[in-house]
């Protein structure tokens, strides 16, 4: 694990610049800022329809100082596949110019990943396209006004689930595992060092990489802008969001989540839910359901790790 001092020394360069139009306390902004610090300037970013299309700046203002393609909603992974193919074709015609060292990054929201973009993502993963696909997960369609997505958690109120969502959150990292791609990781904006390290690692892996970042959204979740890090942290502390990596099929729980393998170390889920207006109508029964979901995730993940150790 890198130390804060080391990270700050090597990651002082900024690529996602101030002057963007993110909301105060935007989880996405933190995620992209730290991801780019790890990936560096030889990165081309593709972003399907999402908040990021807007917050990078209305034309002619642009906050990123790296190449950036705004893309159609369903087309993040496929457009990135094309970009990577072009870099390979350029590396053939212009060898030793660094075109083969380019990172092709996708930064998509949970709607663009778990709903409309899943076909293209699945295709890219099956082909093992040399792209790094990132889902910044704020658990609803925030850009269009907080509608439910398949990544919205059970019981959460959105503008299209006014009485709370009736279904569970789609577990996309697990779906990506089924594609047997070389690298999968979960991250949180509350753990920038962990995020930084995982992106550094992903950058040097050939093939399809998938990173899923929990990125809280103050207006969408209903909490104060100053509490984004706290929300992301509570998600980890309650065991709701588990940080882990899957490298070539081998799963390991990341440091920040290790402590919460022990259920007695986890904080009660209500401490996380009660700070967000989207969970304001959660009943006791729903709370039990949500807790069951958490327990089940841990059970599955731990049994898998146990099985691979045998």
């Amino acid at each position: 694990m890198v130390t804060i001092k080391e990270t700050l020394n090597e990651a002082c360069e900024e690529y996602f610049l101030p002057g963007n139009s993110c909301c105060a306390g935007c989880g996405l902004e933190i995620a992209l800022r730290w991801a780019m610090k790890a990936l560096g300037p030889k990165t081309a970013l593709v972003t399907p329809a999402s908040c990021l299309n807007v917050v990078i700046g209305l034309w002619p203002k642009t906050a990123p100082n790296f190449p950036f393609i705004n893309m159609a909603f369903a087309a993040g992974a496929s457009a990135a596949t094309g970009v990577d193919a072009a870099f390979k074709a350029k590396a053939y015609r212009f060898p030793n110019q660094g075109w083969d060292k380019m990172t092709t990054l996708v930064f998509a929201g949970d709607g663009g990943t778990t709903d409309i973009g899943i076909q293209a993502l699945s295709g890219a993963a099956e082909r093992n396209s040399n792209i790094l696909y990132v889902c910044y997960d704020n658990e609803a369609y925030m850009n269009t006004g907080i509608q439910r997505s398949s990544s919205t958690p059970h019981s959460a109120i959105t503008t299209t689930t006014p009485f709370g969502k009736q279904r569970y959150k789609k577990n996309l990292p697990r779906i990506m595992e089924a594609h047997e791609i070389p690298y999968i990781a979960t991250c949180s904006v509350s753990e920038p060092l962990d995020l930084y390290e995982k992106f550094k690692k992903a950058k040097d892996i050939e093939g399809c990489k998938y990173i899923h970042i929990l990125a809280p959204c103050p207006p969408g979740w209903g909490y104060g802008a100053e509490d984004t890090i706290e929300m992301a942290r509570l998600a980890i502390k309650s065991g709701l969001w588990i940080l882990y990596e899957v490298e070539n099929g081998v799963k390991t729980i990341s440091k920040a989540s290790k402590k919460y393998v022990d259920p007695s170390k986890r904080i009660p889920l209500i401490e996380y839910l009660s700070k967000q207006k989207r969970f304001r109508t959660v009943s006791e029964q729903q709370l039990i359901k949500l807790q069951e979901g958490i327990d089940k995730s841990w059970k599955v993940i731990l049994s898998e790790i146990e099985a691979q150790e045998k």
Partner: peptide
């Protein structure tokens, strides 16, 4: 849909 998206990506590049 992915055909044209990937061709667009490659053409932009």
């Amino acid at each position: 849909h992915s055909v044209m998206a990937s061709v667009i990506g490659a053409s932009i590049a």
